[in-house]
Simulated scan of single mutants.
Amino acid sequence: MKKVIGVILVLGIIGLGSYFLLLRQEGFGFTVKNQTNKEITGLYLIYNHINSDIKIPSIQPGEETKLHVTPTEDFGENSMKLQYKDSKGKQHTEYVIGYFEKGYSGGGKITLESINKNGEIQMKVEDTTRLY
């Protein structure tokens, strides 16, 4: 009986340790889903002091792509934005993480819902940012 309790205790500790290790994973994971009827290209993730913009690969209609961003630059308060240019060359910006600092983690889901004739994208953003 003591062995069974010991095994359950050890497995519980390993399980909890794994759970908290996954929660503390550094950086931000994003899923970008294209629910429009057109291929979407030219999307970038940016934040202040970024070394180079993060290009999101082209996404076919009905498809999704996943990416992980781990900011390594030196900064304090920050926000992460999705940027793109419409067919007239006008730049559009959408916040995907309104606020983060070094050590924050999480991510979000970006759903591209529709695109009009000018190339303006209607999107829904869900943020799951965690402190440390």
Rank of each mutant, 00 (worst) to 15 (best):
K2Q: 13
K3A: 11
G6N: 09
V7A: 13
V10W: 12
L11C: 15
G12W: 01
L16S: 11
G17E: 03
G17S: 05
Q25M: 09
E26Q: 15
G27T: 11
F28K: 06
G29D: 12
F30K: 05
F30G: 12
T31S: 12
N34Q: 08
Q35A: 11
Q35H: 13
Q35E: 14
N37F: 07
E39P: 06
E39M: 14
I40E: 13
I40N: 06
T41F: 05
G42I: 03
L43P: 08
L43N: 05
L43S: 05
Y44H: 07
Y44P: 01
L45I: 15
L45Q: 00
Y47T: 02
Y47Q: 02
N48P: 04
H49Q: 03
H49V: 04
N51M: 03
S52Y: 09
S52C: 00
D53H: 09
D53F: 11
I54D: 09
I54H: 07
I54M: 08
K55M: 04
P57G: 04
P57R: 09
I59H: 04
I59D: 03
I59R: 00
G62K: 13
G62L: 08
E63Q: 13
E64D: 10
T65C: 06
L67K: 04
H68Q: 06
H68K: 14
H68G: 00
V69C: 02
V69S: 02
V69D: 03
T70M: 09
T70S: 09
T70I: 14
P71N: 11
P71Y: 10
P71W: 06
D74W: 07
F75M: 11
F75K: 12
G76I: 00
N78F: 09
S79R: 10
S79G: 13
K81E: 15
Y84Q: 05
K85Y: 08
K85M: 04
S87M: 02
S87C: 01
K88I: 05
G89C: 01
K90L: 14
Q91D: 10
H92D: 08
H92S: 12
T93C: 03
E94H: 06
V96A: 03
V96G: 03
V96E: 01
I97C: 07
G98N: 11
Y99Q: 13
F100L: 03
F100V: 05
F100K: 02
E101T: 15
K102Y: 11
K102R: 14
K102N: 11
K102H: 14
G103V: 00
G106Q: 10
G107M: 04
G108T: 06
G108V: 07
T111Q: 10
T111E: 14
T111A: 08
T111S: 13
L112P: 08
E113V: 15
E113M: 10
S114T: 07
N116W: 11
N116Y: 00
K117N: 08
N118C: 06
G119H: 02
I121R: 05
Q122E: 08
M123W: 02
M123F: 02
M123A: 15
V125K: 14
T128P: 02
T128M: 00
T129S: 04
R130T: 07
